[in-house]
Write a protein that binds this DNA or RNA. Structure first.
Lengths: 232, 232
DNA sequence: GACTGTAATTTGTTATAACAAGCATCAGGC
DNA sequence: GCCTGATGCTTGTTATAACAAATTACAGTC
């Protein structure tokens, strides 16, 4: 047909850059993605129930793709099912929060170590994010600081060039999303130097062990404000 | 009502053991579970396409729950979607296999360390599994040895009492399922003592560092037979 | 024979309806 | 007042059909 086929077209001619595969995003995909960022941004409170039909009218789609989007997030443990089968925003338990921190220590630590021999320009992105975080702390804009902190850790993980690890860590952050807004409830710990800085410096020196240790310290000593919002 | 309610019934009477919550397993859940164990047991070869309607007739259910089961496994990355949107058994790349091993080193290592102060009876289960593995090696029953090896590692992870970590590790094993049957293609490495034994001994001594190291060695030096069946 | 255009089949996607189970509301009786 | 029972509504689950896109099969043409 006239449309560009994926497998080698007729001519050996090189295609212009603007010829790229059409991305067809299904309705369920769109709902899924929207809900996911809402979760990560802390816009859905724990114990909120996401009933199927009300949700589908809110998204302007039918029940089938809506159910698909919700169940996908349930499969990722970003959402949960209550006894009735209704989708609900889960409330982390203390044990779960501690476990997530332990796993993050291992995985983010490994990603940082793996990213220690990266080009300087890639570390610049981290530097820029941390600069914005400091700025937010100064101006007391904690809501934005929370999201930037998340972005810092995820960008750090991307540096490790380990897609599977990244995906796991991202899921852990999504699971913490609903309580992340309380990250700085206990105030901002005024450690000197900030662990983020120690991470960045270690990366620039190419010292993978130091990077791993700095990540561990950042995870272990931060986030104390979250403990007030977990169960048991 | 007449049915046993979950929250404390009228009387303070202790309920007999045989009174247990009714488990209503949906059709999609059943299909999901069946496909999952088939995957973990290596009964689905990479690149196999699982088309929606043929699958649903094979399971004797309609398209909706079938699609739900398939997409749930896709969400867990145990299955994948090709360009057309057809569900397909993924073929691991070399990078993915290496990454999975690295992640398993961290997580299974942590689980082993956390399980080092467990009751002796729980370690006995590991001992029993490993005994069966040795037996299978002796009798050249490699197909069973593969499944037992998987069970050994998962049982070890359960010892750590970290549900989130366990679930992540289990997913990694499911992803390797389709090529796991080739675990011993290069023969059984006749190391002495077997890393499993070192793991068990370390657990019995309550030495978490030794347990972690033994796990690392088991993961790093085992599974060389898999590399022949990954891409790139 | 190789290529091309068309028809038929199969594919994933979405909407809709039927179903059963659960919950809430409210009237009625003690 | 409090409990009981019925009714109606809302919930998740499943089946089915309509749709569009893509692939396949096949015949016609050069």
């Amino acid at each position: 047909m006239s449309s560009a086929s994926a497998s080698e077209p007729d001519t050996g001619e090189i295609l212009p850059d603007w010829v790229r595969p059409i991305v067809k995003e299904s309705l369920s995909e769109r709902a899924y993605r929207e809900l996911r960022v809402a979760l990560m941004r802390g816009q859905l409170r724990p114990d909120t129930r996401l009933r199927l039909r009300p949700m589908s009218v809110r998204f302007g789609i039918s029940a089938t793709p809506m159910r698909e989007a919700l169940l996908r997030l349930v499969a990722e443990k970003a959402l949960a099912l209550d006894a009735r089968g209704t989708v609900v925003v889960p409330r982390l338990t203390l044990d779960q929060l501690l476990e997530i921190r332990a796993i993050r220590t291992d995985l983010e630590g490994r990603a940082a170590a793996a990213g220690a021999d990266r080009r300087a320009t890639e570390v610049d992105e981290l530097e820029a994010i941390h600069a914005q975080i400091s700025q937010c702390h100064a101006s007391r804009d904690f809501a934005r600081a929370v999201n930037l902190n998340t972005e810092f850790h995820l960008a750090l993980c991307r540096l490790g060039q380990m897609p599977i690890l990244y995906e796991i860590v991202e899921l852990l952050w999504v699971r913490c999303g609903p309580i992340l807004s309380h990250l700085y409830d206990n105030g901002v710990p005024d450690w000197e130097p900030h662990p983020h800085r120690r991470i960045i410096d270690a990366l620039r020196r190419g010292n993978s062990d130091a990077a791993r240790d700095a990540v561990r310290e950042d995870i272990e000593h931060g986030g104390s404000g979250l403990f007030a919002h977990v169960r048991a």
